[in-house]
Write a protein that binds this DNA or RNA. Structure first.
Length: 638
RNA sequence: GCCCACGUAGCUCAGGAGGUAGAGCACUUGCAUGGUAAGCAAGAGGUCACCGGUUCGAGUCCGGUCGCGGGCUCCA
């Protein structure tokens, strides 16, 4: 018999006969059985329960904390849930049940409508299953056997899944108690570690994610080894809820959305302060980066949208209107407007690159079900820019855009990742053009040493794009900035410049945003800061709080001193106690509270209370002004 | 758009198995002049989202519409 060497997690090497069954690398080695407690990595490949090992291998036990460990843990949990559902609702048809970033889900098809009470029952049944102490068994079937098996069990979705497994791939099954599932694994060896169980929600989900398919019922859940971890997770969810921008937007009086205009946000005075600061910051850095600003109309003749290709590719998302018996469309994108300006005169190669920025208000008819506060709206302002560049300038200009985005995101302390989207099915242009454009983006990313994830077929209809995905407080990522390389619009609109050789040539167009939209960016900022905006962004930067109304005059003097230096300051001169005024200012998350009374009047002082720290003592008014001005100047992220 | 849940005062929410609405906060007024997260009292506030149905009678039951929330699909 051939011997193979297996390196165990503790570093020791043991010899086994070929074909050894792996069960748990930490136990039962002497019997020639290694037991995979949580799935183990063998020569870099995750091996599941009872894998047969035929070559030298190195084991590394995957921990619960690992991404792989969690995946295995939650994937097994989804099987436990499926078994519980099968027991409680025997008619159920199973679709898929994977692990996700935070927990797992399983999609079911049944006449029964799951209710929150059902979730409790399922949870109880799951706990029972864990107590019963099952071991998962892995086995394989031939394609024919598998199809036959699921047909007999009346599991049409599973039949479809088996049929879609590529020829030559092993068709593996895992059996947990009386629940047998088609599954590639790996899984936990047994279920006893799944101690803390919480089913989170019921949702609709299309079979295979296709809206033409049947809507199934999806149950989301999460499990942990320890109750404590579950409690912490639930606490985190609640913390996230507290900083929901829709809640804070109301509490801080920043914006509102009304039934009269679903998806069309209203900005209140305080929201407008933040918005205007973002805009002026944006203008400042863009001017420095060599951009010029333009403004184009909201409503333009339908002809333009036929020419741009939006009619063919984007019509279902557009709003239309009729003026003087002519059809018009509300712009869903800013590019055609910018293009009309480009076309209003002749351009020399010497003019290029042209960097035209536009805070463009666009309207898109998004599906009602996707609207979400400021994050997903039907009317929004893109911090757009279109760059008209010579083919030789493409790479350099792309790099500059990436650098600009880097800088802007760093000001807010955002982490992000980049995704590259390639040619979609519904698109225009030749394969050569798409390849050229896609390679251009890749080259620029490589030049900046940026990692990126590829989304095949996710590009705009006129070109490939890279997206910047910012991470918000809840760990959700939001697509903000985007850079799109476009050879199509210049073609469609016959854009030209006159080159050195006096020939008319085609410029390349770069579409890009950095905030993405002012609305979404503000929503992300609200959650990111939990409403505690840094001083430079805070709608009210300081509030003067007189102890009693006899100090109101002094309070107003202090206010004027700050106001004259451009600080956004208010006075709370209501007849309320200081404790009450402080409470309100804290709830409004105002960065600085300036308490004034007898002592302060005498010395021309203010007693400074910082939002997150508390009382930091007295200082002369002038000193406070200098302090806060410096913080504003430096855009301190606290 | 689709699936599920929800829609009561400006806000957060109560209204047991139909009998025409309540609390706290906020608001107005009065008292209190108070030193770092809610002083006391009174008053004013609602076509119970909208439309229709069942019923002697609907906030409550049924149907529809709109909106909102959690997802799916889509996306800045």
């Amino acid at each position: 018999m051939d011997k193979i060497k297996i390196t165990l997690p503790d570093g020791s090497v043991k010899e086994y006969e070929k074909g050894v069954k792996v069960l748990d690398v930490t136990k039962d080695i002497s019997e020639g059985l290694a037991r995979v407690a949580l799935g183990a990595v063998v020569n870099g490949v995750t091996k599941g329960l009872q894998e047969t090992i035929n070559e030298d291998a190195t084991f590394r036990v995957v921990k619960f904390e690992d991404k792989e460990g969690k995946e295995i843990f939650w994937h097994t949990s989804s099987h436990i849930m499926a078994l519980a559902v099968q027991r409680l609702f025997p008619d159920v048809k199973f679709a898929i049940g994977p692990a996700i970033d935070n927990g797992f889900y399983y999609d079911f098809d049944t006449e029964h409508r799951f209710s929150p009470e059902d979730l409790e029952k399922i949870e109880e049944e799951m706990a029972k299953i864990v107590k019963e102490g099952h071991v998962l068994e892995r086995f394989v079937m031939s394609r024919e056997e598998a199809i036959e098996y699921f047909k007999e069990k009346n599991q049409p979705y599973k039949v479809e899944l088996v049929e879609s497994i590529p020829e030559g791939e092993e068709i593996s099954f895992y059996k947990l108690g009386e629940f047998v599932d088609l599954c590639a694994g790996p899984h936990l060896y047994d279920v006893k570690k799944v101690k803390a169980i919480k089913l989170l929600s019921i949702a609709g989900a299309y079979w295979r994610g296709d809206e033409n398919n049947k809507m199934l019922q999806r149950i989301y859940g999460i499990t942990f080894e320890k109750k404590k971890d579950l409690d912490e997770y639930i606490e985190r969810l609640e913390e996230a809820k507290k900083r929901d921008h829709r809640k804070l937007g109301k509490e801080l009086d920043l914006f509102s959305i009304h039934e009269e205009g679903p998806g069309f946000p209203f900005f209140h005075p305080k929201g407008m302060i933040i918005r205007n600061i973002l805009e002026s910051f944006w203008r400042e850095v863009h001017t420095k980066a060599g951009y010029e600003e333009i403004k184009t109309p909201l409503i333009l003749n339908e002809r333009l949208w036929h020419q741009s290709g939006h009619w063919d590719h984007y019509k279902e998302n557009m709003y239309f209107t009729n003026i003087d018996n002519e059809n018009y469309a509300i712009k869903p994108m800013n590019c055609p407007g910018s293009i009309l300006i480009y076309k209003s005169k002749m351009h020399s190669y010497r003019d290029l690159p042209l960097r035209w920025a536009e805070l463009g208000l666009v309207h898109r008819h998004e599906l009602s079900g996707v609207l979400h506060g400021l994050m997903r709206v039907r009317s929004f302002t893109q911090d757009d820019a279109h760059l008209y560049v010579l083919p030789s300038q493409v790479k350099e200009e792309l790099i500059k855009v990436i650098e600009l985005a880097d800088y802007i995101y760093s000001i807010f302390g955002f982490k992000y990742h980049i995704e590259l989207s390639t040619r979609p099915e519904k698109s225009m242009g030749t394969d050569e053009q798409w390849e050229l454009a896609t390679n251009g983006l890749i080259e620029a990313l490589n030049a900046k040493g940026k990692e990126y994830k590829v989304n095949e077929g996710d590009g705009a209809f006129y070109g490939p794009k890279i997206d910047f995905h910012l991470e918000d407080a809840i760990g959700r990522t939001w697509q903000c900035g985007t850079i799109q390389l476009d050879f199509q619009m210049p073609e469609k609109f016959d854009l030209t410049y006159v080159d050195k050789d006096n020939e008319k040539k085609r410029p390349v167009m770069i579409h890009r945003t950095i905030f993405g939209s002012l609305e979404r960016f503000m929503g992300i900022l609200i959650e990111h800061y939990a409403g505690k905006f840094p001083v430079w962004l805070a709608p009210v930067q300081a509030i003067v709080l007189p102890i009693a109304d006899k100090f109101n005059d002094y309070a107003h003097e202090v206010k004027k001193a700050l106001f004259d230096k451009g600080i956004r300051v208010e006075v709370d001169d209501r007849d309320e106690k200081i404790g009450y005024k402080i409470r309100e200012a804290q709830l409004q998350k105002i960065p600085y509270m300036l308490v004034v009374g007898e002592k302060e009047v005498e010395g021309n002082l203010v007693s400074v209370r910082k939002r997150d720290i508390g009382d930091i003592g007295q200082m002369p008014v002038g000193e406070f002004v200098e302090k806060i001005k410096k913080e504003i100047e430096d855009k301190v992220n606290q």
